[in-house]
Amino acid sequence: MAIMYALKSSDNEIFEVEQKVIEQSETIKKMIEDGAATGEIPLQVSSKTLAKVLEWCKQRQHKTVENENDDNKGKRKKERDEDDDIKEWENKFSDELKADKDVLFDLLLASNYLDLPALLSFLCQLVADMVAGKMPEEIRRMFNIENDFTPEEEKAITAEHGWAFQP
């Protein structure tokens, strides 16, 4: 029988999760090892975000289990199919996040807090792809960034970093 843990979100919702799934988080792993995790594990993450985090962890879990089972460097067809499935899943996951940026940023914070490096890198890459090649005004609009420079300051920066703004 798999060992289960109960995670408690900041809005008091309980998530029952297998140990293997949740141990991907170094933060939670440490809490378990330190014995701080008797009963429910309280987390500073909202239930909406936590659900997303667990969705990712479960998907990753399948991936790592597969990899452990075969000590093989070469890729077989089956594995390629599985890779395609994972790609498809990841695309869907990214599309949802792109559509709801608040969830995206909450998830970034959560992956940082829970110490999930794979998720953090995945999300940072996602944001980087959204930013790449866009004009400053577009990026500001996309992410609600307030331009707090005076026109003079802006001019000075543009002059200094001119190379970065040329198409």
Binding site: G133, P136, I145, E146, N147, D148, H161, W163, A164, F165
Partner: peptide, 11 residues
């Protein structure tokens, strides 16, 4: 190039 261009977004 793109990373540097983010310096204009805000302080």
């Amino acid at each position: 190039k793109y990373a540097a261009s983010t310096c204009i977004l805000s302080s």
